[in-house]
């Protein structure tokens, strides 16, 4: 390695900035626009981790990622207001997921209410529009509905359980490039 190259490297990482430990950063640095490469790097890494996990653990990968997501959901929702009504809980959840995921409650036109009772099950359809998991999967050419989707499932279930105190289950009904339909089963 030439001395010139080393000097050049040192130069790139040198500045006259005075950094004090008590200074709390008030904004992202660098600006989000400049973070594109980082975002793509994180998506690529996530995709590789998930692909390797699936190769080694097979279907067990779903259980691992679901568990991880559920724990995360419980953890994050712990600090949110507790609600007994599902509508309120979904509202809280929507706030919780803002920026990463966006969803709406949805119903087919032949149903009168959003809370549907069918075959002894009570459920709500959720349409997920913006989803960082879908972005990651498409970035890596991976199928939707696999272990990475299970992380989001676990996250939603964990958060709903934490907010309402009721057991819940989420099922994939359909996945698409622009939105995914999920069924939140209430117990």
């Amino acid at each position: 390695m030439s001395a010139g190259y080393i000097d050049e490297l040192h130069e790139a990482f040198h500045s006259d900035l005075v950094y004090r430990s008590e200074e709390i950063p008030l904004e992202c640095s660098p600006r989000p626009k400049e973070m594109e490469q980082t975002l793509h790097g994180v998506m690529k890494l996530n995709g590789l981790v998930i692909r390797s996990l699936e190769e080694i653990a097979g279907r067990g990968a779903n259980a691992v990622t679901y568990r991880a997501g559920k724990k995360f959901g419980h953890e994050v929702a712990k600090y949110f207001q507790k609600r007994e009504d599902v509508e309120g809980a979904l509202h809280e959840l929507s706030d919780l997921l803002r920026g990463q995921y966006s969803f709406e409650v949805w119903k087919p036109e032949d149903k009168e209410t959003f809370i549907i009772e069918e075959n002894g099950e009570t459920f709500i359809y959720l349409v997920f529009h913006d989803c960082i998991v879908r972005q990651t999967l498409r970035r890596n050419g991976l199928d939707q509905g696999g272990p990475l989707c299970q992380t989001l499932f676990g996250y939603v279930v964990g958060a709903i359980e934490e907010i309402t105190g009721r057991k819940a289950k989420l099922e994939i009904v359909h996945t698409g490039p622009n939105a995914c339909l999920k069924k939140l089963v209430l117990k």
Partner: peptide, 25 residues
């Protein structure tokens, strides 16, 4: 509005109007 029909259509014969386009990161 999942648009999987768009992805699957071999003739690209479909058009949706009034749809929410999800972010494409």
């Amino acid at each position: 509005g999942c648009l999987s029909c768009h992805e699957i259509c071999p003739a690209q014969a479909l058009e949706h109007r009034g749809i929410y386009a999800a972010r494409r990161h």
